[in-house]
Each structure stands twice: as C-alpha cells, then as structure tokens.
Nucleic acid binder design. Structure first.
Lengths: 122, 122
DNA sequence: GCCTGGTTTCGACATCTGTCAAATTAGACA
DNA sequence: TGTCTAATTTGACAGATGTCGAAACCAGGC
C-alpha cells in the first residue's frame, strides 16, 4: 500500500468534485443511492453487459443466461438499477430490452472526473 | 425521465470503461467492494469532507462533530472506507488523522471517465 | 506509575439485502 | 379462447449492515 496522499494542487488538474468540496447531506443521500446500486458485483456486471452489448441494449434472457442465478433474482437486480436511474427498459413482443441511461452515467462521470483549474483560479 | 440511450459512437468520446466492455466476475467483485463502501451517505460525506479539508487531511474529532452519530459509528464507517482502500490514517499524539488515497480514487476515475477513441480505431 | 480524554473494539439488536420458489402478468400463436 | 413462453411480483428466509452502549485501549501529562 502506497498511502500516497491526495493533495489539492493549484496549478494542475485538481481532485474530482467528490473530494474537492464537502457534500451536503442531501447531495450525499442522493449520490449514495446510485453508488449503492452499483455496489454489487452482479449489478455491476449487468450494467456493463448492457452497456457493452451490441446496439447498446440487451435482452433480459441473454442477461439471465450469463449468471448462475434465477430469473427473479436477475429481475430484482435490474429493478434496483432501474430505480437508481441507471437503466431503462422497453417490452418488444415477448422480450424486454434494457439500455444504459446516459444522463445518470454522465452525472457519475462528472463526480469522478478531476477538474482542470487554471493557475490563477484560487 | 429522458430515457436517452447511451450509444457507442465511433468518432467522438465513447463510453466509460465500465459500460464499454463487459466486466469479468472478478473485476466486478473487486470494483463492487469499493463502490459499496461509497454507497452510504455518511461514508460519502466523510470521504468528501476528508478530501476537501485544508491540507488534505482531517482529524477524527472534527469528523465526529459534523454528524449526529456516536464515535463508534463514525469509527466503523472510517474502517469500511479504509478496508476499501479509499483512505488511510496515522496517529499523531492524541489524535488520528485521515487522508484520501489517490490510487483508489484514480482507479474509480478511470472507470467513469469516457475514453477518447480516434476516428479510425474500430 | 496512574489519571484523563480521545478513539477503537465488542456485543447486541433492528433493519436491510440477496436469493429462491411459487404465483402472477403480458404477449404470441394456434 | 386456451396454452405456451418470458419476465416480474410476492413471500419467505438466512445473512449482512448501521447503529448504539459499554468496555477496552492508547498517548500524553501529572
């Protein structure tokens, strides 16, 4: 373990918003719901399988086949991701297709992307 | 809800690694542990308070004062963040100081930062 | 050496979570 | 209409999690 500190430096890329300014309680509650949804290996793989799938969407049947879990369990995890605003779905005939919502992913991305600050910006 | 799809586009910034290639089971388990640690409002605020604190580090006593929770509870949350490799600490005299570990934050950042792919890279 | 204040660990408890089996819903097709 | 398939919902249960009070621990000062 390197124990390298994350120090805020002025004249280069600074830290991500998450650690550059203290979150308020309600911001934290909001963000925590999304991160909690991602805090499970199965859901993380589901999200990444959906996002990486050709055409940007995947059928539930394909997702279910990829795991050693019952359909209700997969369905439960998909619901958690849906409630967190990370994915959405649509029924087309017999099958239900899921895709990743860009909006929520972008929000997370902004939270973790280091901000560039100009040299005199303090 | 916009339900806007996240489509992989070739000649501009593409999706974050998380949704551009399906995670393996062990990658997912690994990453999930870190995200699970962040999936709690108190821990999210603790991390952000430590990171945003002047000097890049904060004393436990300051952190405890900021919440309506008992010291054991704050200590528990700090341990979860420590076990996830997100923070580290050091005792100096009576007090214990915490700071954010750049390494793990960088890893998360990379996971959520969209990759730039050149126009002919497919 | 032994107080004292700050911090962590321990033990307990209510709540939340992941999982499955069974029941239910929604559409396709005879 | 009835039946088949795909997906979700419901109900139940074991195990994990967040919280607290009490006890133990540790560093500094007397």
């Amino acid at each position: 373990m390197s124990n390298q500190r994350l120090l805020p430096l002025v004249d280069q890329s600074c830290c991500a918003p998450l650690v550059s300014e203290a979150l308020t309680a309600s911001e934290a509650a909001d963000l925590a719901q999304v991160l909690k949804a991602l805090g499970d290996p199965v859901r993380l793989r589901l999200l990444s399988m959906i996002g990486a799938h050709e055409g940007g969407e995947a059928c539930v049947c394909e997702l279910t086949d990829a795991f050693d879990l019952t359909p209700p369990t997969i369905s439960h995890h998909l619901k958690v991701l849906r409630d967190a605003g990370l994915i959405a779905c649509e029924r087309r005939g017999t099958w239900v297709y899921y895709w990743v919502l860009a909006e929520t992913m972008d929000r997370l991305t902004r939270m973790f992307t280091p901000e560039r600050v100009s040299a005199g910006a303090v």
